[in-house]
Amino acid sequence: MACSICLAGPADFDGWRAAARGLLAAGIAPEAVSWPGQDGAAGLFDGAAPDLPRDAPSPAVPRDFLVQAELAIRHSDPERFALLYGLLWDARRRPGLLRTPTEARMARLAAMARAVRRDAHKMHAFLRFREVETPDGVRSVAWFEPEHHIVEAEAGFFERRFAALRWSILTPRRCAHWDGAVTTFTAGAHRAEAPAADAAEDLWRTYFASIFNPARLKPEAMRAEMPKKYWRNLPEATVIPELLRGAEGRERAMLGQAIAAPGRRQRRRPSGAGTAG
């Protein structure tokens, strides 16, 4: 029996969980299930639900597995729903499976959860608000491009932090708007709909340039944590090329100054290697 599952959205964890429970109770093997987004199937996030047992008993699964599953559901990988259901199916015959982090599919699940967690962390870190005057007062608007389906899940972070502001977070797939009491979600937006600048950005760039120590240049370490794909939405990133170009000269000037001090000879330590990137 082939079975097409519909979900309420691309990160519908509760919907996936209910469907998985029903499929397990009906004894439907993973090969017979098609999940939204698989094989280019589109529009399945809002179709008719197949006739599955409702309120099926939930099989016991480790808490860690559920935590990881909830994160992995937000991943943009179209195979996420099938991967998770396949694991549940096999766990019926292999009780230790969901507790074996070294098993290949469990490792893939962990990698997906990790990617989603990292995406969320980078959203908390690299999202930048710009303030605009509106008839209702100041509004803080951000444009951000997450890799995964995390806007709904992460809106709470911004509510807790910026409850006193009125803000909108615009992204290509989903937008969130906080009015001081509730967050509403709307369809994706375009970059051009977000404000292009903010009065505080000059000060912020000044700070970014001044806190940088040119004697410790390590651009590859910067790029590992703040990959270039984020730069176009970071106001401070525009000064990075200039800082990189100027760094060597500034360090040489400082060393030269000290070397020129009377009565001292330059003594480079062997351990000093490692300034250049």
Partner: peptide, 21 residues
């Protein structure tokens, strides 16, 4: 790691900061 500063004191080593150490 002690980092060269502008107008460094002559009492200190004029070397790049010992980042690896």
């Amino acid at each position: 790691g002690y980092s060269p500063i502008p107008a460094a004191s002559a009492a200190l080593p004029p070397a790049p900061p010992p980042l690896l150490r």
